[in-house]
Design a protein around this nucleic acid. Structure first.
Lengths: 173, 173
DNA sequence: CAAGATACGTCAATATGGCTGTCCCTTCTT
DNA sequence: AAGAAGGGACAGCCATATTGACGTATCTTG
């Protein structure tokens, strides 16, 4: 341990295992992810507050918009919350006529969720604010960077969850 | 909109309005950011629950670890929550002897926050779990992707907040 | 067909992490 | 001396999540 005078830790990661990355690179990622994510969602929060809704409602709206006729249990998988928590959110949304449900035809136990026209309008509005910010970030970073951005994020998602995310991609007709 | 037959995206960013990106690209970013971010923080939540702490405590720990002798008001800027909310968190942390404070020497109204040894150990533990995941994602994506990842995220942070984020970078002496 | 599994809903109780508004003390600046 | 700034504390509120237990309709299968 011949680390000289400097009180800075031995960060010469590069040396050994490639998985043991320099702490700085990891901290940088953590911080950018934190600030980037919170800033992106902040815009949405404001738009939602006006309608008396919260972030949870937006997430539900988003996935329903993304996959019309989504079932409750699929939505639960996306949101990874409990049935009870989702129940409240879904009730709020249908009271406000933003979401409607009908019985599944194949399996009539299922409830197929869809946005009403008003719901679609609201979702589009909120999405517009996401688009502005993300599109600006894409543009500033350049298209080459976008691929890397996606790539790293994909790596953060555990394998068992990838099929779920991929399902969204497909519904993107 | 004379986008030709090809179903491949019109990515010649250059094309029309470079800010009006294809919806799919934005949705993909939103989704990856959501799943990536939640999966990354999930690991942390488990570690914290054991100590009876929550995510809020981790954020405070993280920034204090990052910038020893951080003042309360600087921490408030990072976290973007109210003094009252932070107060509770900080009390929890000092009750558990994870954080300690001393008076500022230059300005004695200030409280300079530091981790205790136990606090540093806990933070290092939690960070380790972040490192594992993020390092694996970096490795899987390749170093070229990491730059793009950072770049796009930077673009999500409003200009007025960039100095704050940069301050962290510097303290990373 | 009967039994069991599945999809959905709901009750009650609880925790966390935020918020607002108000008021206070100490210390620095002018 | 007055005001601004850093920090703290009270009370009360709200949104979002949790667990566990239970109920009902519907599908699946031996």
């Amino acid at each position: 341990m011949a680390v000289p005078s400097s009180n800075s830790p031995d960060r010469s990661s590069s040396a050994a295992s490639p998985l043991f990355l320099r702490e700085d690179e990891v901290r940088r990622g953590v911080e950018l992810l934190y600030f980037g994510y919170t800033r992106l969602t902040r815009s949405i929060d404001e738009g939602l507050a006006k309608q008396g809704l919260g972030r949870a409602h937006h997430r539900a709206l988003y996935f329903i918009a993304r996959q019309p006729d989504l079932t409750v249990s699929d939505l639960l998988r996306f949101l990874a919350i409990t049935k009870q928590s989702l129940g409240r959110v879904l009730n709020d949304l249908s009271e406000r006529d933003l979401v409607e449900a009908r019985k599944g035809e194949i399996d009539r136990r299922q409830k197929l969720l869809r946005l009403t026209e008003a719901g679609a309008r609201l979702e589009a509005d909120l999405f517009e604010s996401l688009r502005e910010k993300l599109a600006a970030a894409y543009a500033a970073a350049g298209q080459e960077s976008v691929g890397g951005f996606w790539h790293v994020l994909e790596g953060l998602i555990p394998e068992e969850d990838l099929p779920m995310v991929a399902a969204l991609k497909e519904s993107r007709k």
